[in-house]
């Protein structure tokens, strides 16, 4: 996807240098592009790809536990305490937020679909497609969050003594 982004942006640079406007035109409209490809489409395509990249990378970074943690103090916590922190955080912070975001961004996307939102400068059509990345990303986060809650619960329940070595939050 980064390749595509690099490629699209480079096309924009070259196109702008040569002062191109309409790059291609065809009869039957296709999703996202409508029936033409202009420099404006290329410009808008940049942030379309970026939006998708952000939401997918966000979920990927969660899976790899790469989101910034400040472990000044928590470095001294036991594994079990850290696991409980994650469990509570996921339950009361992450899940409510992404559940609401999934719900409201779905409505947000539907509105774009219903009203045929599109570029007002002769660029891309079908804004609802790029707006779909929000509910998509939220559902991925939600799924990953619920997964971690279940895993952490499993670890906590199967090691009631407090000796936990697996699962939880790797540093």
């Amino acid at each position: 996807m980064i390749f595509i982004l690099v490629f699209v942006v480079l096309t924009a640079v070259i196109g702008a240098q040569f002062g191109l406007s309409e790059l291609a035109h065809w009869e039957n409209p296709i999703p996202l592009f409508g029936n033409h490809l202009s420099m404006t489409s290329i410009g808008e395509l940049q942030w379309h790809i970026f939006a998708l990249l952000v939401m997918l990378s966000g979920a990927y970074a969660f899976k790899e536990d790469r989101h910034v943690r400040v472990d000044v103090w928590s470095a001294r916590f036991s594994d079990r305490t850290r696991l409980i922190v994650d469990l509570l955080g996921d339950l009361f912070l992450l899940i409510p937020f992404f559940a609401l975001l999934a719900w409201y961004s779905w409505a947000f996307m539907l509105m774009a679909y219903e009203f045929g939102e599109q570029s007002n400068a002769g660029g891309l059509v079908d804004r609802y497609l790029v707006k779909t990345v929000l509910p998509l990303g939220s559902v991925l986060m939600l799924g990953a969050g619920v997964g971690r809650v279940l895993r952490n619960l499993g670890v906590l329940l199967s090691h009631p003594s407090g000796k936990t070595t697996t699962g939880g939050s790797p540093q």
Partner: peptide, 13 residues
């Protein structure tokens, strides 16, 4: 922040 929970989700939540 000091609990070590990811800051992004803390802010969101």
């Amino acid at each position: 922040i000091f609990t070590g929970y990811p800051v992004a989700f803390l802010l969101a939540g």
